[in-house]
Design a protein around this nucleic acid. Structure first.
Lengths: 296, 296
DNA sequence: TCAAAAGTGTTAGGAATACACCCATGG
DNA sequence: CCATGGGTGTATTCCTAACACTTTTGA
């Protein structure tokens, strides 16, 4: 027995006659914060290179925000979902497929794009830097990998009658050759007896397009959180790596020094030792490790 | 000095002449999993009522999925963001404002709505059941609060050459007066050397519309996670409550019995004692607590 | 008096923290 | 030999799981 609606139509008949209304619809973009970790060269015998956390930005060649830097991304097409759109954009920008991708948050504020109604479904991606060439801008467009610094500046908490308002202020600094972008971002938590909300606000912004400062901030917070709680940071490592390299990656993500012994115990279950070593010269050669798939 | 683009336009001039292209755009809905906790009546002297976790569903009155049950929600309007749309829908459905709302995930699979291209930005909401009338369907539409059961059925893990595939199978049961909906949902984690992805799939589904089984499953997982890690469950409590009631709420969310002493220590910082007590009859009267705003 | 629930103390084990120490290398 | 980094052991602190126990009430 087939159900019919109040017009006497079956579902099949309904779908055949269905025409989408012409009310206004938003454009949906998938924008990505692509993280990688690179080495600084600083090899004067007995000094190891340091690590830097970097993200890919693209200089806008047209209005709006002409000349400002924006996250890579693009509109989702009708024949793909958001994950596929993100993977496609990532492949187009960097030439790399099969990458760790995680959906973060969907940004929908009115007026976030001055042209028209555009929402952004944001993603973070993690790539081992050995998988691509650092010069991403092989076509005309101007792309660069910016070193990331995201630091807590101050905290302000106000107790209300019932509830509180807590504002954390962060400074986001992005730097590449000759370019230095700075933004100050507030993360405000408002708690009341029945509700609780978290709002990001851009207090100042020098050089970033749209609301991408918010997206980058939330991506960094997510990356830090996941690094502490999961094995996600291993996606930034090549097949074989030393534990000191892994620790440096953790440190540059978390912007915090870690104790060696404790770190090694923490990641012990995430990696397996191999029989290979590197020669670094001047020190005891470190053992190489790989990911361990048995656990978790 | 004003920047001009390759057509010689300033940003202001560009925006004035800008016309949105007529490529296809998706509709964007905000759909909500609204949780509350209710008491069963079972007061035969010396027995306290038990708690049940419930969500609001609405029976579809038209195609597609005529007669099936769907999450409350609606399309986002051009003059509001997704949070505001969710709050507006929530107020329309339940009459309650100022509620805990959290954005979850944006579902974008092709074909998830058979009519047209529709994405869903999903939210979870937590309401103390004393704040609304249980009969939400005061207008024509058919709404009901369904008791939630979400149980782990089995786990399957396959080790690959490099990586693994882990599938967790869950049974989602929703029950209201005379209605019993069941869905089986797989959560598959695929880990490879360079990537990792989590995919939800509906294996069977009896009575739920669209992909709402996935949305409900991810909301329950988020609620459980947040209950363990934060004070979020307090949004389900009235102003004054006993610690046993709070523990019952935790237990019904987590589907797990907790030890009293450990629970009390865990929530000690989240609540403050008051000088009020309830009389339950037959037992020692429990002290009433309220939220503590000093902490966290 | 007693069943049912409120509420507290005590112990054991595991994880993170902090520090101290030894090992290996090549210039 | 020694600076530099690789690598390990141990004591301390903290959190939580587990269990045992006491208190209070109204029929």
């Amino acid at each position: 027995m087939e159900l019919v609606d109040r017009d006497g139509l079956t579902e099949r008949e309904f779908l055949e006659q269905y025409r989408a209304g012409d009310y206004e619809r938003p454009s949906m973009a998938a924008d990505m914060v692509i993280f990688t970790v690179t080495n600084t060269e600083a090899d004067n015998y007995r000094k190891l290179p340091e690590k830097e956390l970097r993200i890919l930005l693209i200089r806008r060649g047209g209005h709006p925000f002409l000349g400002k830097w924006a996250l890579p991304g693009g509109f989702i097409r009708p024949d793909e979902n958001a994950d596929q759109a993100a993977a496609r954009e990532l492949s187009e920008e960097t030439g790399v497929d099969d990458v760790y991708l995680e959906q973060l948050h969907t940004f929908t504020d009115v007026g976030r794009d001055p042209r028209t109604w555009v929402m952004s479904c944001s993603y973070m991606a993690l790539i081992d830097s050995s998988r691509f060439q650092l010069k991403a801008g092989d076509d005309a467009e101007d792309a660069a990998w910016f070193k990331v610094s995201y630091r807590h500046l101050r905290e302000q908490k106000e107790l209300l009658d019932e509830g509180y308002v807590k504002t954390l202020t962060y400074e986001l600094k992005l730097s590449a050759e000759g370019e230095e972008l700075t933004a100050v971002i507030n993360r405000t938590v408002t708690a009341k007896p029945t509700s609780k909300s978290v709002v990001y606000a851009i207090m100042s912004n020098d050089g970033l397009a749209f609301d991408h400062g918010k997206i980058i901030a939330s991506a960094i917070e997510r990356l830090r959180y996941q690094t502490n709680e999961t094995d996600i940071a291993l996606h930034l490592m090549p097949k074989l790596f030393t534990l000191t390299e892994l620790q440096q990656v953790y440190e540059v993500i978390l912007d915090k020094e870690l104790l060696k012994a404790a770190f090694r115990r923490k990641v012990a279950n995430l990696v397996s030792e191999t029989d290979h070593y590197t020669e670094n010269g001047g020190h005891r050669p470190p053992r190489l490790y790989r990911r361990n798939w048995e656990q978790a």
